[in-house]
Amino acid sequence: MIALENVTKRYGSQTVVDDVSISLGEEGVTALIGPNGAGKSTLFGLVGRLLKPDGGRVTVDGMDVATTASSTLATTLAVLRQDNHVAARLTVRDLVEFGRFPHSRGRLTVEDRDHIERAISYLDLDAYRGRFLDELSGGQRQRAFIAMVLAQDTKYVLLDEPLNNLDLRHMAEIMRLIRRMADELGKRIVVVLHDINVAARYADRIVAMRDGVVVADAPAREIMRPEVLGAVYDTPVDVREIDGKPVALYYG
């Protein structure tokens, strides 16, 4: 369980995460939604020890993020940030190999190789293993990054906007994959999403943030209501049922 207790983060006079207490990672897939600047990425940064909180405490399976060795946490929690810009010319296989670093410290064992091969196959990247990242399409590159965190073999996986810049087909592909990772491999995945319909379709639980505060936290179906979504995004959202599934219409 990832537990946040009264976590606060400020940038200058602006409070981006304001006294948040929440526990994440009990469900298979948790979607984190909210308007731009709601504090979602900052929250991920705080959980992933990339940022230091100004107040409060974050624990992962009882380990305090601030005091536990970074290398220990890396075997329990993996965080993939958005906009991963890798300047180095690395192959898909290189990248996935680095995912094993917390376990191997650079010396790959047979078990490490096994994990690497499985991650590559799971993401359907066998044909691209020798390709350099800059020779891949956006969807393939995103899959390579996910293969890396999969090889890291952690219980918790945090993905920050993994659908950024992907077309419809690749969006659906990545979301199906996230669902499978939760159902088949028992991963606990927290994912930041912008499309609430995608969140409703694939997530077990939706956490909505606004102005640094958690404003809604419930099973997907309960979040998909006009008054809840309207309040989160500060814009009128209509919700209709299509084939028994709630669909939000926000195009005006």
Partner: peptide, 17 residues
């Protein structure tokens, strides 16, 4: 290997412990 990971950026490196 550590330098390779550093080449991925601070966030990647921290994530990998």
């Amino acid at each position: 290997d550590r330098f390779s990971v550093i080449g991925l950026g601070e966030e990647f490196a921290t994530n990998l412990g």
